[in-house]
Design a protein around this nucleic acid. Structure first.
Lengths: 304, 304
DNA sequence: CGCCTTCATGAAAGTAAGTTTCATCCGTGG
DNA sequence: CCACGGATGAAACTTACTTTCATGAAGGCG
């Protein structure tokens, strides 16, 4: 059994359900049907026998077993038990409407707000649960020691990349972000051993970002990927993979929740790096805060 | 099949474990051995196969089955999943350190992650709770009907502003964001009745943003402020005020959590606007999604 | 004391669940 | 058009679970 020697791989402590939904797109169609049933109602799945579940997913038992292996379980009984445990742990959601992720056509604003907030908060929490501190540690270490850090991201992930760049910059790390692929590519070509390149892509399939990360890696830089899908193409050009845990819903809410999750991960890395050298980071932060002070009015203290 | 008219079977509320230890003395010696194992470590028992457990209890599988029936379960698999669920439900309370908000100097990465995620999630939830749907409704209405929307923000709030602009743009609303104050001012000067200006500032004291919003208001545009502090200066130049609810902590975590809260609000407004005209929004979203399709690689499916 | 009854128990037979193997099918790229 | 590789389910197979049944220990009674 040759396993891919990825850094993150085996570890899925937080939620199995979360882990499964992350893996969902990397599964074969038949396995996806199984996965969807499992994610939709873990407790129910745990109650079913393998034959039962296979029938419900309109597939064979063999596929269910394959699915078990795909998500890192030994066999069906193991999956069953894990599911039962997960389902039990899970506090029941405040409102059934809210969990689906998508907004019903007739929804009023209050519902919309509740739904979005629920999904956003969940994405943040679940992301934190499944983040591997060991991998984060290594990434923090690499960034803390890097001569230079490039952060790549396109579209919505571009904001996150940019945010990360700004944060690192504020604590005195030399960091860059490029909105333009060509510039990014030329920058990546100038990276070398000891530098770090971070690529952010929700789907993990953004070719621009992958390409740039690949270039950076070829030049000897340490590459880090931040994506929602642990087996997406971007992970193949990354030394370290960090994953978010936004549930797969529609393109709309999925991407939105994912962005918050990405920011949370960025925050964690940032604080980790800052904590590595508190004194210096604090000093840098204070200096930058002071710099914008003249652009603030009054006290800003308020309310009662 | 004729069922034995057993205890009460189907429903033993509180804990199965408690239930079992309750009727332990009424069990036969061999069953008691099984029961003791189960009570001692439910999670472990759930992991074992029936043969395994029987051996461990120095008895036969038949006795284990009898035990299952004695405690009201149908069979061994049922007992197993119930045990797994029970064991999982015994949750450890969330780490007290985590809720405080700030990161202690000696914190390791796992703590940092937990703290940040907790605060981020809380900020999102609390923001949603205190958001006034009526105000949102009016803002959505204004944006939905606007000839043009300007979004202003500086520093970290600039990312949020930019994000909002991009979102509105994607559903076919004419929206602008200006990283530069001068450009923003000139743009604001060109706004008029029916247009909307949104100013984003965590502290509510960012003079650049206030100034621009003021300009927009003077030209007759509807002004919206998004801030964490409901009585800050920015609220004085806004027709509608939306507030986030990030707790006041240190400059670090406060601003970070606030940014997520801001994004949540932006998401809500966005979805609200999109919901106002689903068909059109969906069409626009699909068109934009299609546009970037060629920049994605493969399906993202991988190995097995 | 011997015989009957009751019940706990495990061996073994029987059934169901889970797992592996393999032939087939389908899309992909030469 | 064919070779290739992955996805898939049928069927063979293995393991786990359940039932049946014979045994024997313990208690009651003549």
């Amino acid at each position: 059994m040759a396993k891919s020697p990825k850094i993150s791989a085996s570890h899925e402590p937080g939620g199995l359900i979360v882990h499964i939904s992350g893996l969902l797109p990397s599964l074969s169609p038949a396995e996806q049907r199984v996965a969807r049933l499992v994610v939709a109602d873990p407790a129910d799945a745990a109650r079913r026998t393998i034959t039962d579940l296979a029938t419900a997913a309109e597939t064979s038992e063999a596929t269910v077993i394959r699915f078990c292996r795909s998500v890192g379980m030994e066999g069906y009984p193991q999956l069953r038990i894990r599911l039962a445990a997960e389902a039990a742990r899970r506090v029941e959601p405040p409102d059934a409407r809210v969990v689906g992720g998508d907004i019903p056509p007739g929804a009023d604003l209050a519902q919309i707000i509740a739904t979005i907030a629920f999904n956003d908060a969940r994405a943040v929490e679940e992301t934190a649960e499944q983040l591997d501190p060991a991998v984060c540690e290594q990434v923090v270490e690499a960034i803390g020691a890097a001569g230079r850090i490039d952060v790549y991201g396109a579209g919505a992930s571009g904001f996150v990349a940019s945010d990360f760049q700004q944060k690192l910059h504020r604590i005195g790390r030399t960091a860059f972000y490029f909105p333009d692929v060509h510039t990014a590519l030329t920058s990546a070509a100038l990276l070398g051993r000891g530098d770090v390149a971070v690529g952010i892509s929700h789907t993990g399939t953004t070719s621009d970002v992958i390409e740039v990360l690949e270039q950076a890696r070829a030049r000897g830089a340490t590459t880090v990927a931040l994506t929602n899908f642990p087996r997406s193409p971007i992970t193949e050009v990354a030394d370290f993979v960090l994953t978010t845990a936004a549930r797969e819903t529609t393109y709309r809410s999925g991407a939105m929740a994912s962005r918050l999750a990405q920011l949370t991960v960025v925050d964690c890395l940032f604080v980790g790096v800052a904590a590595r050298n508190r004194a210096r980071a604090r000093k840098a932060l204070e200096a930058t805060a002071e710099a914008v002070q003249s652009h603030r009015v009054g006290s800003g203290r308020r309310r009662g």
